[in-house]
Amino acid sequence: MSYESPELLDLPFDQYQRYRMLAEVADILRPDEQRLRVLEVGGYPPRLPRFLAHDEVIVTDQPAGDFPGYLQADGTRLPFRDREFDLVASLDTLEHLPADRRGVFLDELCRTAKDYLVVAAPFQFEAAREAERIIFDFIRVHAGYEHIFFKEHLERAAPDQVEAEKQLIAAGFHTLVLANGRLDHWLMLMAIYYFLDGRPEYEPVKARTMSLWNKNYYRSDNQEPAYRHFLVGSRRPFGRAEAGLLALSSREPAPALDLESVKAVIEIARLDSDRRLRGKIAELENLLSAREREVEGLKAEMEGLKNFVARLKSSLAFRVYSFLFQRAKS
């Protein structure tokens, strides 16, 4: 399977990195290149079918939608039989659930998975929460709105990775943990993405930037410290697949977080905001100058009218008219 088609590479890096890792996990786990029956819970709008084009993929989520293989459903009450799917996955969904529903959600994933289960999320990690706060504030200041998903992340406690893994083990799964989304890369690229987002003139640049990163630097994103982690579960011991899975992410810590590049992006955004603000100020100053010229013109017209009235009042015709008018009144 090639993950480098233009339609995939142009995806936002954050989507590409998690869906590609899931697809690579599926390719390693599939027995003898067998076609898998896969369920993704919480994947609206569907993206996974594009990464697993040769598998049967069902995607469920709560919004209504008309997509092939998509079913509107509640992840805590899935309308499927026990162990109906070879692989069940949920990516960056667990953290959006209220804490008291996460256990039921994981139970449903375990119930419907015949062989394999993958749960990925930004679990509890203070550095990741601080990175989200930075991006939330960046979007609010730079773009003028509050990002609904980051706001939800910050309002709810992140899932506990240890507790989630314990729940999978209790349900009979062997587990592995994989790092995905190296944190300093994630922070830098999120700043770049939302700096370019929402401005039509920057859309081609945004797509090229995402494609460049996804094609050349995806591998470097799968190491600690990571924004998210994949919990990979198997009902049987992983056996020879374990080495392949562990090779998907580096177990060696990354070098010290490279925050200078992030600061550079934020400084560029600040300068751009300043430039746009100066442009708006210049536009308003030009408008004010035009209005001042209009006022001066009106003043000149008013002065002309005053002079005309003065001349009119001093004319013989006006004096005669005034005399006759007063006589008529008396």
Rank of each mutant, 00 (worst) to 15 (best):
S249F: 02
V118A: 09
P255Q: 07
L22M: 11
A241I: 02
N214R: 12
A269I: 09
A226K: 03
S250N: 12
K313G: 00
D86V: 01
K206N: 00
Y19E: 04
I139V: 10
C110G: 08
A131N: 08
Y218L: 09
E24F: 00
P98W: 06
S289Q: 14
R291K: 11
L176N: 00
F308G: 09
K206D: 00
I266G: 00
V88H: 00
R37S: 13
Y202S: 12
F173G: 06
N222W: 00
L29M: 10
A207V: 13
E163L: 15
H54G: 03
Y194F: 15
L97A: 10
A171R: 13
E285Q: 15
L271A: 12
S90D: 08
E292Q: 15
E292H: 04
L298A: 10
D100S: 11
I139T: 03
C110D: 05
V265Q: 02
D258L: 14
R319C: 01
K215P: 00
I192Q: 11
L117G: 05
V57T: 09
S289L: 13
D272R: 14
A120E: 15
P79Y: 06
E84M: 12
P46V: 05
N222Y: 09
A300T: 14
Y321T: 07
E294A: 14
S322Q: 08
E126Y: 05
F308V: 12
G43C: 06
D14A: 11
R133M: 11
G144P: 05
